[in-house]
Nucleic acid binder design. Structure first.
Lengths: 146, 146
DNA sequence: TGAAATTAGTTGCATAACTAACTATATGCC
DNA sequence: GGCATATAGTTAGTTATGCAACTAATTTCA
């Protein structure tokens, strides 16, 4: 493959390695420094509920790219921390609607601000076109594999 | 921020979300379909040992971007599967050198080929310049945060 | 209508991640 | 030499992930 000399194997570690690990650790650290006890995984669930409250667990699976057991347990933990509540759907008794509590609503602005700050730190020296390229490539990769 | 209208919070999920999850799942699935019983995390350790055998656990931490407990347990599991062996360093008795067994050496070509194929699937329709941009951005993000 | 297939969610098991606290060895420095 | 400090690795506890197997409710369709 004369026109493809970069090592594809290396690319796996680019996509799954250092950068995403570093960003996740920094964001978790920034939450902790702010006295927030939530994990970044829990935050990513809340993030979607802030955009649209009372989603089904299946819908949260789709939006957060997780499988059903992962969401079940994330919701279990969020419920223990009184950040969400499972409400039975009236139209379909199989469905749990996951709704925010007041305690979770209070966290929205602060945590999103922390996420924005973290990404600002992470993206120093990266321009907007480069960011758009990364987003487009990642969307393409996702579409290719699903 | 008139010149920065993209949502930074969204970028967290770009870097840590769908694409890396999808690639990891696909690579794991391709290992499984080929009858290989190793996890992608174990594979990433072996990958560095194929490049340079008999590294210390600390060196593996650095190269795989993991912390020490993670490497301890990955090596525990790799040792159970007889893919690596801990050897005492002669110059420094604190150090374990982690060395490949013959069984692990046999896996090198096959698994790297599977990783290359997986990345080829993932990167259909993505050109070389875009890949270089992703790599550069991720290196920059990593450098910014460490 | 009623059996088969689909969908929503849970549980069990194995692996892996992070933090904090720990042991053992090596190094620095007075 | 000997004490303080740093480094290599392990252990314990909590959270998260993936897969497979499971229950319960709903939909399909003959």
């Amino acid at each position: 493959m004369p026109n493809n000399q970069f090592k594809r194997g290396e690319l796996y570690s680019v996509i799954n390695g250092m950068a995403s690990t570093a960003v996740a650790r920094r964001l978790q650290k920034n939450f902790r420094l702010a006295g927030l006890e939530i994990t970044i995984e829990q935050w990513s669930v809340l993030y979607h509920l802030w955009k649209e409250d009372c989603l089904s667990q299946q819908e949260l699976c789709t939006r957060t790219f997780r499988d059903k057991p992962s969401i079940t347990r994330l919701i279990d933990n969020l419920e223990k921390q009184k950040l969400v509540k499972r409400m039975a759907s009236k139209s379909d008794r199989r469905i749990n609607l996951v709704c925010l509590t007041d305690a979770a609503k209070v966290l929205q602005d602060q945590t999103i601000e922390l996420a924005n700050q973290t990404m600002n730190e992470a993206l120093i020296g990266v321009n907007k076109d480069e960011i758009e390229t990364v987003k487009a490539v990642f969307q393409r990769v996702y579409d290719n594999l699903t």
